[in-house]
Amino acid sequence: MLQGTLDMLILQTLVLGAAHGHTIAHAIERGSEDVLQIEHGSLYPALHRLEDRRWIASFWGTSENNRKAKYYRLTPAGRKQLLAQTTRWDEVVRAIGRILKPAAE
């Protein structure tokens, strides 16, 4: 996976609402129709890093099947960061697209 994209995907997942690590991992996998295979463990350092930068916040809660779980939610700063990152991502994708498949004039 591309450097930095995991952060973006996590933030994107949290736009819909607070979630714990297990949900986030599965959401990313499902959302990409299983194209993006991530090692679920690698999610946690990323979560830690995002929390450290105050883009997400965490709290302990109870999961749907009554397990104790740590939930993460997006902070306003994280929302701004997500917007910036997706914009940037779109630009890069468009640019790469233009190079690989030049549009017919």
Partner: peptide, 16 residues
């Protein structure tokens, strides 16, 4: 310690 608990919680959910 907290991290360990979080990981444990993942493993349990996944096994569930």
């Amino acid at each position: 310690q907290e991290r360990r608990e979080e990981i444990e919680s993942y493993v349990q959910m996944e096994s569930d």
